[in-house]
Amino acid sequence: MTSQKPLIICDFDGTITMNDNIINIMKTFAPPEWTALKDGVLSKTMSIQEGVGRMFGLLPSSLKEEITRFVIEDAKIRGGFREFVAFVNEHELPFYVVSGGMDFFVYPLLEGIVEKDHIYCNRASFENEFIHIDWPHSCKGTCTNQCGCCKPTVINELCEPDQYIIMIGDSVTDVEAAKLSDLCFARDYLLNECKEHHLNHMPYHDFHEIKKAIEDVTEVKKWLQNKSAGESLPK
């Protein structure tokens, strides 16, 4: 029984976490100018890279410890995520977190749950007066959307030929990745976009639902059956 090897890509802010950490940071620490930048990103009149970069550029670097402490205390991991990660690890399903968030809060929040080399995110620099964002995973190839952390670029780097791509997300930063997926688990903004673009998708509230649904995906079932049978699987 042949099968496509699954590849699971998961957003962080608003997906793994219950709330959008960047929005909460801005609401708490940024001057009012951040709202227009956020609206520009959501309306797609401004790129994610420009909008998010300028939002963080409103924040003094001297607030690093205070902002970090706020995010760690404020963020809540969505129900079932730890169990979901245990499931994908047990069955050796390729799983990566690809986040438009920043290293100073993404890494500590996922510590002990997801290995660092399976996390792609942006880097925040606090060396100058105001926070500066570096974009180590910016757009390459055919993507010219200035995504910041470009999820299509990361997917193209990770994806092997003929893989079955599963995307999990919630926001404007996930739309282009959803278009590349064979199946997208979506909520909030992304759910509406999946409907509008007629993408193959399923809504979710927590990772218990996602785990149960993924176990029933035909390609995943074939993959797990082949592994259980000890058949030779494509690398």
Score class of each variant (00 low, 15 high):
residue 64 K to V: 06
residue 108 P to G: 01
residue 37 L to T: 02
residue 118 H to Y: 15
residue 71 V to C: 07
residue 65 E to A: 10
residue 62 S to W: 09
residue 118 H to Q: 09
residue 74 D to C: 15
residue 91 H to W: 14
residue 72 I to R: 05
residue 94 P to H: 09
residue 75 A to S: 15
residue 121 C to N: 04
residue 118 H to C: 11
residue 53 G to S: 05
residue 42 L to W: 01
residue 73 E to V: 12
residue 45 T to N: 05
residue 101 G to H: 05
residue 39 D to E: 12
residue 85 V to L: 01
residue 81 F to V: 13
residue 110 L to D: 12
residue 37 L to A: 01
residue 46 M to G: 15
residue 74 D to F: 14
residue 114 V to D: 04
residue 120 Y to A: 04
residue 107 Y to C: 12
residue 55 M to S: 13
residue 68 T to E: 10
residue 76 K to P: 12
residue 119 I to F: 02
residue 95 F to T: 11
residue 53 G to K: 00
residue 44 K to V: 10
residue 46 M to W: 15
residue 53 G to Y: 10
residue 110 L to T: 07
residue 105 F to V: 12
residue 41 V to Y: 04
residue 122 N to M: 08
residue 113 I to G: 00
residue 38 K to L: 15
residue 57 G to W: 04
residue 48 I to Y: 02
residue 60 P to C: 05
residue 80 G to D: 06
residue 80 G to P: 02
residue 98 V to L: 14
residue 67 I to H: 07
residue 36 A to C: 15
residue 103 D to R: 00
residue 47 S to P: 00
residue 57 G to Q: 02
residue 97 V to M: 09
residue 43 S to K: 06
residue 67 I to W: 04
residue 110 L to R: 01
residue 116 K to E: 06
residue 43 S to C: 06
residue 94 P to V: 10
residue 86 A to P: 10
residue 121 C to W: 05
residue 39 D to H: 08
residue 41 V to C: 07
residue 101 G to A: 09
residue 90 E to S: 08
residue 73 E to P: 04
residue 88 V to I: 15
residue 121 C to Y: 07
